[in-house]
């Protein structure tokens, strides 16, 4: 099936099978390895990408569903060498340890800030349910998102 989508600002036309998962198309056809396959059951958030601004689990999402959509992966967050305020805040707060969850955390936070420019700590924790980090204990991730929200406002 034909699939036309804009990924990180670049338009792509692909021929994919109906059973192709978005995660495999991004990683294998477009060589974007930021989204990770981890739990493969929509529980952990490591494969999170944004489709028209909404967070989805690319591991359990048919690629053909993204036809005509605009996608953002972690590779598209920075503007050239200039980091996104969320990336800057994650670095400054020490919100990255092993880094495996980071791309999903950043994109989930981006979706949250798009909906709610001034989230409370509780709003952030609610939104991050299903985004698992086994290193940081979440505290610094939440701090980083609050900082990024303040700098972007």
């Amino acid at each position: 099936m034909n699939l036309t989508m804009v990924v990180n600002g670049s338009s792509h036309e692909l021929d994919v099978a109906p059973h192709s998962l978005l995660l495999d198309v991004l990683r294998d056809s477009l060589d974007l390895k930021g989204a990770k396959r981890s739990c493969d059951t929509q529980v952990c958030g490591a494969c999170t990408v944004l489709v028209d601004g909404q967070a989805v689990s690319a591991c359990t999402y048919l690629a053909v569903e993204a036809d005509g959509c605009s996608l953002l992966t972690v590779e598209g967050l920075a503007d050239g060498e200039a980091l996104d305020p969320l990336q800057r805040a994650f670095l400054d707060a020490g919100a990255v340890q092993c880094g495996f969850c980071t791309s999903g955390m950043l994109l989930t936070a981006r979706a949250l800030l798009r909906e709610n420019a001034a989230p409370s700590r509780e709003d952030i924790l609610h939104y991050l349910r299903g985004s698992l980090c086994r290193c940081t204990g979440y505290r610094k991730i939440v701090e980083a998102i609050m900082t990024a929200a303040r700098t972007t406002r």
Partner: peptide, 12 residues
């Protein structure tokens, strides 16, 4: 509905 699963599941 706000508390079903996680935001990715709720979106889809």
């Amino acid at each position: 509905a706000r508390h079903v699963a996680n935001v990715r599941v709720r979106n889809v």
